[in-house]
């Protein structure tokens, strides 16, 4: 297929299909990117993007030289890493198990229930998490009480929060994420299963050799996409659900890049908040891109067909 060939009428037809979507992306995504120059400026409203003063890389320096830089990177990376690994694992497992269910009505009910948390905004989730973890009346503490364990003030235990946040994340997303995998499984050629049955393969073998491999391309792509954003933290989860890191007590594990930037300008937004925010955003993008290119290359090494581009 790698032969050089001329562009045919068919190719032109294919290109023409791309035009409108590409224009939309251009207008709404590429045109605003001119604003990336704000990252190198001391941005003032009255001077605008172009006439504001250049400040070189000093906006980046602010962030990189910060005392908590390593803490932020560590927290952002580790939490997101856990979200990706456990998120993908749980949604694949749920999809595969749903696929094994033969009663379609049951599937419908279960799937509908699984996606309900998706409709709740993080603020509402924060209320619910508090209802479970609150030191006085939280459900978890009531449960612990039954076993004679004293109530724990979870909002003062930083080490408990990476698992709590991961669980919250999975709870909110597993239903929706598994929908993709489930739909993909629906597309598997049933002839393959029949052949497997003829060969006497049991359920487990069938799952391991047909079902999971058929999901690998999708898993790879979705994971690569997620890795690109591994340096971006979900502000709502890390700020709202932790109740602003429970007023500071949880920062050692829940302070992430996005919450740090937010707090930096809470009281002094005139201090070039726009420039610094843009700089950190740009940095997150660049690192993300490097990671994506690396994972993309790695997955292509494993299998040529895998990979995003």
């Amino acid at each position: 297929m790698k032969k050089r060939k001329r562009i045919t009428v068919r190719d032109m037809q294919l290109y023409s299909l791309c035009i409108i979507p590409m224009i939309l992306v251009f207008i709404f995504n590429y045109m605003p990117m001119v604003g990336l120059i704000i990252a190198f400026k001391n941005y003032k409203f009255n001077l605008g993007m172009f006439r504001s003063q250049w400040v070189g890389f000093s906006n980046f320096e602010f962030f990189i030289k910060s005392d908590v830089f390593f803490q932020l990177v560590r927290n952002t990376l580790l939490n997101n890493f856990a979200f990706i690994v456990f998120g993908v694992m749980s949604s694949v497992i749920v999809a595969v198990l749903l696929f094994e269910l033969t009663n379609r009505n049951a599937t419908k009910i279960f799937q509908t229930i699984l996606i309900t948390p998706h409709f709740l905004s993080w603020v509402v989730v924060a209320y619910i998490v508090n209802a479970i973890l609150n030191v006085n009346y939280g459900y978890l503490n009531q449960l612990l009480g039954l076993f004679g364990v004293d109530a724990v003030d979870w909002y003062a235990k930083p080490n408990a929060w990476p698992p709590i946040l991961t669980l919250t994340f999975i709870w909110k997303n597993v239903g929706m994420d598994s929908v993709v995998y489930y739909a993909a499984l629906m597309g598997i050629d049933t002839a393959l299963f029949e052949a497997a049955e003829v060969d006497g393969a049991n359920k487990l073998k069938r799952t391991l050799h047909i079902v999971i491999p058929s999901l690998v391309p999708l898993i790879t792509i979705l994971t690569i996409l997620k890795i690109g954003n591994i340096f971006r933290a979900d502000f709502g989860l890390f700020y709202t659900v932790t109740q602003d890191g429970a007023s500071g007590n949880l920062y050692s594990t829940t302070n992430v890049i996005d919450t740090y930037i937010f707090r930096s300008f809470k009281e002094n937004a005139s201090g070039n908040s726009y420039g610094l925010t843009a700089a950190v955003g740009l940095l997150q993008s660049v690192v993300g891109m490097i990671l994506v290119i690396a994972t993309n290359a790695a997955s292509k090494k494993v299998d040529k067909e895998l990979g995003l581009f």
Binding site: D11, V25, M31, P32, M33, S285, L308
Partner: peptide, 29 residues
């Protein structure tokens, strides 16, 4: 898979997932 420039278009799209102009320029547009 045979289409020329396919990768470039892929990248054109993917790039927007990583990079965005930020709030102010988007608002202005």
């Amino acid at each position: 898979s045979g289409l020329k420039g396919r990768n470039a278009i892929n990248f054109y799209l993917y790039f927007t997932m990583l990079f965005s102009g930020g709030l102010v320029p988007t608002y202005i547009i």
